[in-house]
Every structure is written in C-alpha cells, then in structure tokens.
Amino acid sequence: MRTVIFETAIKLLLPLFIAFSLFLLFRGHNSPGGGFIGGLLAAIGLFLRAMVFGTKNTIATYKIRPIGIIAIGLSVALVSILIPLFSGLPLMTGLWFDLTLPLIGKLGTPLMFDIGVYIVVIGVVLNITFILSNG
C-alpha cells in the first residue's frame, strides 16, 4: 500500500479532509452537518493517512493519543455546558456572542459543545480503527 503516489495523495488530501470537516462542523447549526458528521470525516481522513503511513507514524507525527483526545473533547463539551452556571442560568443554557464571523457563524456555547462532540468523535474513531488495524 505504501507507495509514493498514495503518500503524496494523502499529504494533499488530509488538509482538505480536515478543512471540509471543519466546514461541516461550523455550518452544522444552519445546514446539514455538525460536530458528529464533521468529526467522522476528519477521523476518516486521519485513518486513511494511518493506513498509508502506519498508525505508529501517524501517532508520532501528530502526537495523537486517542484516549487523550476523547478526554479533551469531553472536557470541552463539559465546560461549554458549565459556562452558563456562572451567570446563574441553568445548565447548558445557550449563550451567544453578539457577533457573526464569516464561515464560522455565530459564536456561542452550543457551538463550543458541538466542537466538543467533534473532538470526541475523532478520538473514538481513531482509537477503534488504530487498534484494529494494528492487530
């Protein structure tokens, strides 16, 4: 599998995968997409890279530790739902900044939550596929 063509292709494709997955993540609030779908795509991209370069290499290159990624994702999601408590509002109340960024859209705690989902999904899928393909 490990041929030059694949390696080059992946090197080019991976950023695209990640970019597209981010795009799906951010637009999810208004159009089909969202953290879960985005996360899956990003993970598939990284998985493809791992198939070509080997999992060990991929882990080393990106300093990925899947369980760590899961923990990070969960904590992002957790923090996002805790934020409103500091304003005396119930858990998970959506709080929004009053500005809209291009491509990303409005910033707010639900978005942050979705980012948490995105990260967890990446972690989970990588964890499973890395372990399985490693034997």
């Binding site: 530790r65 369980i67 760590g68 899961i70 923990a71 969960l74 904590s75």
Partner: peptide, 9 residues
C-alpha cells in the same frame, strides 16, 4: 472525575 482520570492515564 472520569475525565480527570482519563487525563491522568
């Protein structure tokens, strides 16, 4: 706690 314990893997 679970998340913290994961970080302390």
């Amino acid at each position: 706690t679970a998340i913290t314990i994961l970080f302390l893997w």
